[in-house]
Design a protein around this nucleic acid. Structure first.
Lengths: 216, 216, 216, 216
DNA sequence: AATGAATGAGGGTTCATTCAT
DNA sequence: TATGAATGAACCCTCATTCAT
């Protein structure tokens, strides 16, 4: 939160920052235990308030999940746009898009890529979210096509490739601990480089983003 | 079930086949909706019986999950052993291990790799299962080390590599439909080849396991 | 079961003896754990058969309880009649009635006085049983009146006396173990003598039925 | 509830009084129908709330039973201590202990001596409770020994005596109705006098605590 | 802005009971 | 005569949600 010139946070700002704290904590919990296994009381406990208090910020548990999805989807498309507008070959655009997605998702919220729990959404909302996610995946597949066309990606089935890549990425929150040895930015770089190498034409014999790992 | 010469299934066989049907259905449901979101009534409905009937085959919902884990763990180690005993370089052993694991897990039960839901296990059982899974991951990491040593894998952090690979693989049940265009064996080959290429030294410029995809 | 002259038990006799075995075991279990806490499976397990088998001998769990009550009520009234027809004073008739009741109830079935669980009976049957039990209690109260009249019992409220006495007696199965140091006959004598002393006129300074206890 | 000077009950007081009301009602129901036969819905219905509401005051049905036991055990030992510290002969101490126990147990909660249902406690808690109860019984047996020694009690087996006495006392809640003709204090006096007479040396020919019964 | 108290729906599990074999 | 399999009701308990304060 930017504080400028003895800035005293307004009521609205306080509200928003608390709302965000709740969202972050919720996403973290959903990632760890799953949506259904996380109770509102549990969320309240983590935040030091009663579960009733949570309803001041979100009308329902579903709404929290929805908000989380929206947020992540936003990050995804932002990253995608930046990658598309960059002046690079297909595989590099793909890698850029993935890195940006992971960095945003892992960093901002503590650990957040929960596209896993889409089945927990109620029908109505799921439709919207799944459409967005599918659109994101489709865009990534197009980048793969682009890469195949420009020779930066070897011939492959884009669907299969993107599914595999998505799997690797969505798995990250299961094992990534923020307090661990890697920052989210390092991880994003390393994982996207690693995973993109699976379809990259003329892949180098050295990873350049794993120096910090002590790998020569 | 093999029927030979007017074979009438014995009571025990019937019991076992029903038990297996339940296990399969449960695993499928857990994969789709998650463990907690799947109710016993729901399982019963899918199988055309009351939820009470399920308790004739498993003492608890937990026990179903446990049995599923045990089964998959068994498949994993079987595949691992075969790979280890093969006479190949590190990366090929790894690919073999992964392929066998996926093939077994995807084929036998309809869709089964649910190592995802480990948090749903009760403490006591979780310890055992998580130990097994960690042992499996550790063995895979060793294969990576072996590959780095023998030059078939480029320098990389084994932990990172295996996490990514595991992610891609565990994601498969989320999108794989048995009635779709690919058999489980085809999928297993294609995904393991794809994913291994991310760390393979001197990777070829063509996938050999994706011919059936129509990829030139 | 009397076997006389190479007596081969007929079907009916076998049936009856099994039925009695079940009744005995059931009463014992009801005494130990209570009616509701004792399941049919548990009963089956104790007898080495399936719970389904039990339904060949009794149409329902309620029926078992009812049969047990009937049996005990029968014992109670038999004992009461013998006491009434004896040529003794009030207190001695009472003691006789109680002793006979306990002896019958404790001895025949392993441990059986379960008048405690009357609330477990369904309305209809409870009415009948409770009436019988009340009739028994009323008869005992009359013996108290008789004793007060003939001077063998001190002035007291018969209701209170009989309630207390009944309590002591119905408590016996809670602590009496057949394999213990006392036989059921010894116990019946000792307890009835002890308990009757509470209202007996000119009570002796020594119990005559506790010699076997080593009490001087 | 004491209302002093416009006393408005605080939230905590309200909570405690509701909790106590629940405990009382539960004990009463357990006495009437038994622990297992009393459902939480039934308890809720009696108190005019949903069964869910009960869980706000106790974490489980078991916990209610446990609390009841604890309460009664407390009453028992309080009474025992007072009796022990009194300056009387053995039989009078015993009578005092019993009277205090009954008075406390019957009066405070409506009807409460439920040491009967100990088998319903889960293993862990049962151990503790049964130990306490055994300690209480043991202490009563010691009073009997003391009485035999000082000549106020005739020679008898203390175990047998205390079992019988306990039975009479634990039976009371089965028939005692608070709205009946006797107060709990009257009852406690009368029953303990009556029951103690069974082992008292030189027992009087008149009960002194039954005047209110109209007994001459 | 947050809490305490209560609700109602649903979940996992047990159990008496039935019925075909 | 007894069993295996299944059912449906009931039970204990959890949880998202509401509402007065």
């Amino acid at each position: 939160m930017v504080t400028w010139n003895k800035h005293v946070p307004s009521r609205e700002e306080l509200f928003e920052s608390k709302r965000l704290a709740l969202l972050t904590e919720a996403v973290s919990a959903f990632n760890e235990r799953g949506f259904h296994a996380t109770s509102m009381s549990e969320l309240g406990r983590r935040l030091g308030v009663t579960k009733s208090a949570l309803y001041y910020y979100f009308p329902s548990k579903q709404a929290i999940l929805k908000a989380a999805f929206d947020h992540v989807i936003g990050i995804a498309f932002d990253s995608l746009d930046r990658a598309r507008n960059s002046d690079q070959c297909g595989i590099d655009k793909l890698e850029l898009a993935l890195r940006g997605y992971m960095e945003g998702a892992l960093g901002e919220f503590s650990r957040c890529i929960i596209l896993t729990e889409e089945h927990a959404l109620i029908e109505e909302e799921r439709t919207v979210i799944v459409e967005s996610r599918d659109a994101f995946e489709a865009a990534l597949r197009e980048l793969v096509q682009e890469g195949i066309a420009d020779g930066s990606i070897i011939p492959c089935d884009p669907k299969l490739a993107i599914f595999s890549i998505f799997g690797a990425i969505n798995w990250v929150p299961k094992w990534y601990r923020m307090d661990g040895e890697w920052t989210s930015a390092q991880l994003a770089s390393a994982v996207s480089e690693l995973i993109c190498r699976s379809i990259r034409a003329y892949p180098p014999e050295r990873f350049i983003n794993q120096n910090w790992l002590g790998v020569r």
